[in-house]
């Protein structure tokens, strides 16, 4: 049972980083910086609960704010470029953040033990959950409450004017600009929102593993972050969660019985999925069909 609870925890955390990339991809920008924001969130929240003795919830919010602020600052220079250039710029930013934490020492003696981030050895003993007697189930509920709140906000945003604006920029920048949309403001706003969500994810991740190291936040994580929304499809935020279930649940855990062959199939199945469903698992047509099935949103609304 504990195994499935742990799996659901991982899925929740990955859903957060996937959703953070989803917001940015809606505007047509591919950002590989999400792992960097995730790392910032993880270190900030960890330092606040361990070194400053904060409760996790304010630490979580602070982590989101700091990661969001960094995303806001990075957004301005990075979003001047697009396409491949943006991929490279954001990759470089993510790597720079990782390398910063690789060289980052800030240790304080607490109760005879030195705690805090220590360069390449990482940041150990982020023990908020065990110290406060959280069971696996409690942690799971905590994670999914955060995921639920973020999903609800995104769902609401998607149905409001803001969602339409984001998608307009993603579909055709020139047309959106002609409609009087300020491209930079929209892109930077999306980047900031993505940064905040990734910060939340990082904060939870740090407390879930209790030990973070710089290589947890490398390009692989950044690639996974953009893989979820692309694989899941961009028509709703649920696509991202479906993709997280597909990758973490099916490809990683479901194929575990294959042993070493699983890793081989992993890449091959992603290639296959993109060939068969280039617009994602939950693409616009499927979403529409599902909506009809559940009797909402008639032909008139989405046609």
């Amino acid at each position: 049972m504990d195994f499935y609870l742990a799996l659901l925890q991982v899925i929740g955390i990955h859903a957060l980083i996937g959703l953070s990339a989803y917001v940015v991809i809606l505007t047509g920008q591919v950002s590989l910086a999400q792992a960097g924001f995730f790392a910032i969130g993880a270190y900030v929240a960890g330092m606040l609960t361990v070194l400053a003795g904060w409760h996790l919830i304010p630490a979580l919010l602070a982590a989101g704010l700091v990661a969001g602020a960094v995303a806001f600052l990075v957004g301005f220079p990075a979003l001047r470029v697009k396409g491949l250039m943006l991929v490279v710029a954001t990759t470089a930013f993510g790597e720079a953040v990782r390398l910063f934490f690789f060289n980052f020492d800030y240790q304080v003696a607490k109760g005879g033990v030195r705690v805090g981030p220590l360069g390449g050895e990482g940041f150990k003993q982020i023990r908020f959950f065990p110290e406060n007697g959280y069971t696996t189930l409690d942690v799971l509920v905590f994670i999914w409450v955060v995921v639920g709140v973020v999903m609800a906000l995104l769902w609401w945003m998607d149905r409001s004017r803001a969602g339409a604006v984001l998608r307009a920029v993603g579909e055709d920048e020139l047309a959106a600009q002609a409609m009087g949309i300020d491209l930079t403001a929209v892109k930077v706003a999306a980047m900031t929102a993505g940064g905040v969500i990734a910060g939340f994810g990082g904060a939870i991740y740090a407390h879930y593993t209790t030990h973070i190291e710089h290589f947890n936040f490398g390009i692989v994580l950044a690639t996974f972050a953009i893989a979820y929304p692309i694989l899941g499809g961009l028509s709703t935020a649920f696509g991202t969660v479906v993709a997280v279930l597909f990758i973490q649940g099916l490809l990683i855990e479901g194929l575990r019985f294959l042993g070493d062959w699983r890793n081989l199939l992993f890449g091959a199945l992603i290639v296959l999925a993109m060939n068969l469903r280039p617009h994602g698992l939950l693409d616009a047509a499927t979403t529409l069909r599902l909506r009809r099935l559940f009797g909402r949103g008639g032909a008139g609304r989405d046609a």
Partner: peptide
């Protein structure tokens, strides 16, 4: 070859899959 040219995200993702596949091989 078989992923629509108008959809750059699709090929981005498929090449990531290929990267992981070649590495694992």
């Amino acid at each position: 070859r078989f992923i629509p040219a108008s959809h750059p995200l699709g090929t981005l993702m498929s090449t990531v899959g290929m990267l992981l596949l070649i590495d694992e091989i």
